[in-house]
Structures are given as C-alpha cells and as structure tokens.
Design a protein around this nucleic acid. Structure first.
Lengths: 333, 333
DNA sequence: GTGAAAATTTTGCGCGCGTAAAGTTTTAAA
DNA sequence: TTTAAAACTTTACGCGCGCAAAATTTTCAC
C-alpha cells in the first residue's frame, strides 16, 4: 500500500481511507487512485486489514456437514444475505467431527469476525468451547439448538412439522409409523418424534416408532439397510411411513424399490413414504417426495438479520425464533 | 503470545518455536509450555502467523459450486489428504459466479497458501486472472481443465467414460442416445459427447444427440423439464439414454416417472437411463443409476500429491493425469 | 484577500506474530 | 573439570495494514 500510494501520488493513510469508503476522499483524489488502480492492480490484503480493524466485515458460517446438500443450500442462502448486507461470509464445515468444529471456531476467532452463524454438530459438540466462543463473538445458532448454551437460535418449529404431516397422512390414508435414527445427531429429531407421538395421540391413533441403528452422516445408506430390515420384519404396523428427515426417506424409497414394493399414493401402491425438510433432492426422487418444507428463506434471512442486530449492539441472547413448515404434497404420500 | 510466554516462564520466541515444532525445544521447556497451555488455553492466531511465514501450511481448495454434492464429496476427500499431509485446507466455493471465483483467488493470495487446488468454473472463468494467479501460487487444476492456462491438471479420462458405457449399453440392449446441456459449463461435457460419438461410430451405430436448453447449476430441473419435452417429442431415437452426467440422469428419471414411463433394465421397462460421475446420490435413485464412476480416490489423492510435489519445488506445470472411470452397473440400465 | 472548514499528509503506534543475529545458559561429551 | 555444542533469551526488525492526533494544504464562501 505504501508503494501503491507513492505511484498514485497520494499518502498511504488516504489510500487506506479510500479502500474503506471510496466516497470519503475528495473526488480528485479518488480519480487519481482509481487511475493508478487500473495500471497497477493493487488490492489490500484482507487478512492484514482484519487484523487491525476493530469491527470486521466478515461473517463466519459454520455448518456440520457440507456434503449434505441441505446444508449446502442453507449455506448458499446465508451467504447471499450476508453479501447483501455488505459483509463477507466465510464458510466452514465441521465434517461431523468435534475437533473440526472447534478448529473452525478457533480459526474464526483469529479472523475477528463481526459475527458468526453456527449450525452446531449437536450431540457431538463441545458445549463449553461453544459457550466460551459465544461470549467473545456475536453468534446466532441455526438449524440445531444447543439448549445448554442459551444462545440466540433460529430454526424450525419441529413439533409443528410432525403435527402438520401426521394430520395430512391420517386424513388421506392409514396413520403413519415413524422412522428415525436410534441415536440422532441433534435435538431436532427428538422434537420431531415427540411431535409425531402427540399428533398421533391427539388423533386417536397408537404411535409406532421404528429406529435405525447406525452412526455417522451416511443417512441414506443406513436408512436403506435398516429400512429394508424393518420392512421385511414387518415392523411398520401400517402402510404409511413418516421419516424423521428427507435423507432417510430417500434411503427408504430405495429399500422399497429393491424389495419390489411400490411407493406412492396411487391405489396400486404398497406403501406411502413422507419425509421432512424439503431437501434439494426430494423433488427428484421417484416418486417425488411428500414432505414438510423448512422455510429456508425465513430461516436464513432472519438468522442474518438477528446477527446484524447483535453486531450493532442489540441485546439478542434471549431471542429465538421458530418457523413453521409448509406441507409439500408430491407423489410419495 | 507475549503474555502467555510470561506466565509460562519462557521467552516469546521460544514459545513461537514450540508452536512451529514442539520437538524443537528442550523437553523441560516443552513441559513447561504444555502445563501453562492447560491452564491458559492460548492458541496462536493463524492469520498473523501466516502473514509472516515464508512458507505457509495452508492449502486452498476452490470448487465451482458447493451445493452440488459431487463437489462436496470431492472437497471432503481433498481436505482429508491435505490434513494427512500436515496441511490446513481452506475451502472456497465460486457458487457459479466469476466474481466469486476471482474473489476466492484474491483471498487466497492474501493467505499466502503453500498451494491451491482449483476446480475452475470453466466457460465462466476469468482466464487471465487464473493465469496470473498460477504464476504466483503453485496450483493444480482438477475436475475441469483450462487448456489455455496450460497448468497441471488432474481429472478423469472423459472420452473413456463414454466409450466404456456406450459399449456396455450396446451389448445389453439398444444403442444409447446422448442427453446433455446445450451450453455446458466446462470442457468435460464436450469430451464426453465426442467420446460418445466416436464409440457409436466404432460400433457401427448412428449417434443421436439431444440437447437441453437452460443456464445455471440447476441441472436436475433443467433435465427434468427438457427431458420431458424431448421424450414427448420422441427425440430419443432409441429406448436408451446416456446422460452427460448423473444429475441430468436424475432429472430425466423424474421426467420418466411423471410421464409414467418405466425406467430400468427390466423386460417390462420402457427406457434405460445411464449417467456419468457416480454422484453420491446415484446409488439411491429409483431405479438406482447405472453410471461410470469417477475415481474420486485417485483424483483427490493424486491432485494433493502433485501439489505437494510442486510445493517442494518440483517442475509440475506440464504434469497432467487422467484417470479411467469404472462401470457401475445398477438397475437403471 | 481573508478565514474557517474540509480534506489531506505526516507522524507514530499498534495488531499478533515470524525470524535473524547476538549474547547467555544448559547439556553432554571429552 | 573443561569445553564445545545445543538450547535458550534478548534485541530488533518486519509483515500489511488500521487508526488517531497533529500539522499542513486545499477549498469555498464571504
């Protein structure tokens, strides 16, 4: 910057000011800088900038597993709203591992971000590390809440999800069984199960829960394998299955195909399958998946908004918003 | 670090040395530092570290579109091999936009990475920007080559892909038509088309190519819409369709479902559909997708290895490796 | 032409570290 | 015990920039 300022015929601090806000310098100066800029292609080093700035324009986004298109989509939305607000998003993925989640937070601390949007691993998260982090950096949790941390949270109203789709399924056919992971990664799954049970009881049906053994993020495979086992063992007491999430539903659809069971809501079909989330791929399964859509727009928009509020000094720790899902009726149920 | 060195009873440069290589200090010193570390939780600021180091331990990974699970999976593999080699990977996504690709490269320059693994946007890439970048930073291209840049490249032998699956499809049924985007994002698509044409001619069949109109990364939707149109207009001259990639195949499967066409290789099925890539979801489509698998392992492993070779001063610019695909036979064809 | 406000420059310090050179202490071998 | 090597500390400077205060210049209205 020193050298660039010299060839521009301007002092370094003025050039620095220009890069902070081009309108903050005299027009003639600005033109001199921009003329030099065309000839010399100088750009400030963003990390050196951040090191000194009190308030950075960086927002960190941390998701638990980026190879899951659900988080890819969510991250894309969040990035969009961050850019729109004039911030630079920086994306991290925990890849399902606690040490990587901690490392992401540690990297972020070093970046001095204005704020952080964190979708924690859940059960695998290092609660105390996250707690400490939140004390230093304005943080909004999303997707998965960490009740112990008592931090601002934006997410879905998971009990409403199950309520909504159980009601639909009961109205249009046999009441659904519930298919989930035995040891789910985050508390959403628990709330969905509870929502299912309550909705079933409210409608006068007996709940039927089937749980899949397995660890990790390979939901489709676990669900395909365990789903096939459950189907063969006739563990689903009705011909309708509500899955805890779309990825499990996708795996179960595959299991049905392989067992020669027709999935769908047609009169000739053997089993109805529904999911939850409106995963990017749920539109393209065969049959297309009936599901409850998360309000991606509202969640990402309001997560960013709440974070901006926090960045500007608002009292945000107690804030928490849950958004209702919308029923997406497709052919699978 | 100053303060932490003080409470450790050690000088700052020694502490710095410790963090660079814990074995480079005397054992008694090391224990003193590690004892203090347990009580005070100090960690060096990675960005400040990078600013001064001549050789950083950071490797940049840039992919064109992270919401595509194909790249999510590839990135996950690359990250793994980077970590294994003792480097810290940092992931960027261009989200299909040229300005974001340039910004990622600019951010990376500021990070002084030891090297960069770049999957360029392709047609949308800013060639001159990438050329300049490659002159300053050891860079290995992957997934999609940029012939003009004449840079080291690790990828798949795309003409072999088509050759392999065309032969299989011809042996087991009607010769395939080819379904692709009209304006594909990268040169792989062209090579796949050429491979298809050559294989067809070699086997004495007339090629039949159907192209889908549409821009962007929403391949499934484009393929579903345009695929349905082509099916209704009977543009596929045989009952077998080879798609340029798995995501298009997934969209086409959905189109078939919606048109009540049975997809698969069963005797009662109407149409056989195959893809290319072995996309993470291709296992779970209904029917599961027959495809040619990219050698994810070999590509990511060797891309990292070549980059490490370059980082250590090897002459790598001319290096270029293409890996053969493997036929994955499932139920769709 | 005068004066005050606005813009800019100068000066100086700081961020959180790496690193090189010179001086000091510790260690291990002779 | 002596001695040299190894490890360590001290000192000093640098990375690429932000930022604040004081000094200077420019601008503009009167």
């Amino acid at each position: 910057m020193e050298e660039f300022a010299a060839v521009s015929g301007i002092s370094r601090p003025t050039v620095s000011k220009y890069f902070n806000d081009p309108d903050s310098v005299r027009l003639s100066t600005r033109k001199k800088i921009e003329a030099a800029l065309e000839r010399y292609e100088y750009r400030p080093n963003i990390f050196a900038v951040n090191q000194n700035r009190k308030l950075t324009k960086t927002i960190g986004i941390v998701v638990p597993y980026l190879a899951d298109p659900f988080f890819g989509e969510l991250a894309r939305n969040l990035e969009f709203y961050c850019v729109e607000a004039g911030f630079r998003p920086r994306l991290f993925s925990s890849q399902g591992q606690q040490d990587l989640e901690n490392e992401a937070l540690s990297s972020l601390q070093a970046l001095k971000p204005a704020g952080v949007l964190l979708a924690p691993l859940g059960r695998k998260s290092d609660i105390s590390a996250i707690e400490k982090f939140c004390q230093n950096v304005p943080t909004v949790l999303f997707d998965s809440n960490l009740p112990d941390v008592r931090q601002a949270y934006i997410g879905s109203n998971n009990s409403q999800f199950a309520d909504l789709i159980v009601e639909y399924l009961c109205e249009t056919g046999e009441p659904p069984c519930f298919f989930e992971m035995k040891t789910p990664a985050n508390p959403n799954a628990n709330r969905r199960r509870q929502g299912y049970v309550q909705a079933m009881e409210r409608l006068g049906h007996e709940p039927c829960i089937v749980q899949a053994e397995g660890e990790g993020w390979d939901f489709e495979e676990i669900s395909r394998r365990e789903g096939a086992r459950a189907l063969q063992a006739k563990q689903f007491k009705t011909s309708t299955v509500l899955c805890s999430n779309d990825r499990m539903a996708i795996g179960l659809l595959t299991a049905c195909y392989e067992l020669n069971l027709g999935a769908g809501r047609g009169v000739n079909d053997d089993i109805r399958i529904a999911g939850q989330d409106n995963h990017p791929f749920s539109r393209y399964t065969c049959p297309p998946l009936t599901t409850v859509s998360q309000d991606y727009e509202a969640i990402s928009k309001n997560a960013v908004n709440l974070l901006l509020y926090a960045i500007n000094g608002g009292a945000y720790r107690q804030e928490s918003q849950l958004y209702d899902g919308k029923l997406i009726i497709r052919q699978s149920a």
